[in-house]
Nucleic acid binder design. Structure first.
Lengths: 166, 166
DNA sequence: AAGTTACCTACTGATTCGGTGGGATTTGGA
DNA sequence: TCCAAATCCCACCGAATCAGTAGGTAACTT
């Protein structure tokens, strides 16, 4: 029941983009450095997310990557699902033709699957962006924690879904 | 977010044992044939489950494997957890020292983890055994005889306690 | 004693994971 | 116009995990 590094990296990268939503394109290397991720690998992950419609990109100088939608509108399920492929815990859930339940533990796996989807649906990029901004405000550069690239004023008005605010 | 074949095989095997709980040792080859699982592989899985205290075994002729507890008292979480190792979706949940949340998405992964555990806790081997018996009654193996002794319903509810922590 | 069964360890082919590397293409700016 | 910056695309690669096999040893029944 692991979430691979693809999923984790992707979530972190998009959370970073979400925290800067509205500021225009950010290039991949910047994201990679800020989140301490391998740049070329992240490039591939973002390409997948672009093909999945979650980000838009522009090439050439001053190009970069931007979220395709408002952070509030992007659930973690969308992100993880694109990077991880199917989230089905077992193959016997595959036949959605609705007739035969081939495996004995079918109700179990189905419950597990829906529980996972439901949880992943209940978080959005806006939730993570909020935490990320809070952390950046708390640990400005120089302190040992998270050296951040540039912390210019993040004035973007964030309407946040307050489901998971703590 | 896959459950490996180890986990699935183990659940099926224990469900089979659960459906025959109280009938004494059943040898591994029988279980393997009934559930269409590779015998030698299943042997390894059951060894793990034995070391984890979920089954007891006896060697030699007429030996075999038996559930160590009432099927109602064994949750699927225990089974999967033993075979799959840690069920933590990501490593940043590892430090249970309760103070530092190192990763930004920590609340997300924690919610995911608990949602998984909760679902896996809510099913027991007795649940699966019931379905298994129902299936066998409906489609008895045509040529080979799978001895289908009727079991009386196992005694009244023992609330399963959450012994298990990660 | 003989046969049956679980136990244990080692090995293995296939697949996935987690990246790297190198180029081609597009774009903005001097 | 030309260069630098950036994404895009694809091939490759070592390491780890997965899903078993194989074979011998120990214990138990008859």
């Amino acid at each position: 029941m692991r979430v691979s590094s693809r999923g984790q990296y992707g979530v972190r990268a998009l959370a970073y983009l979400a925290a800067r939503y509205g500021e225009g394109p950010i290039n991949v290397r910047t994201v990679a450095q800020a989140e301490r991720l391998p740049a070329k690998y992240l490039e591939q992950l973002l390409a997948k997310l672009r093909r999945g419609g979650l980000v838009r990109s522009s090439r050439g100088a001053r190009g970069g990557v931007v979220l395709a939608q408002d952070p509030k509108a992007i659930s973690i399920r969308q992100v993880v699902s694109l990077l991880e492929g199917s989230l089905l815990p077992v193959d016997c859930l595959k036949d959605t033709n609705g007739h035969e339940e081939n495996c004995v533990a079918h109700p179990l796996w189905r419950a597990l699957h829906e529980s996972v989807l439901s949880t992943l649906d209940s978080f959005t990029l806006a939730d993570l962006a909020e935490r990320l901004r809070a952390r950046e405000a708390k640990a400005p550069r120089g302190s040992g924690m998270i050296p951040e690239a540039e912390l210019e004023t993040v004035g973007a008005g964030s309407g946040r879904s307050d489901v998971h605010s703590e």
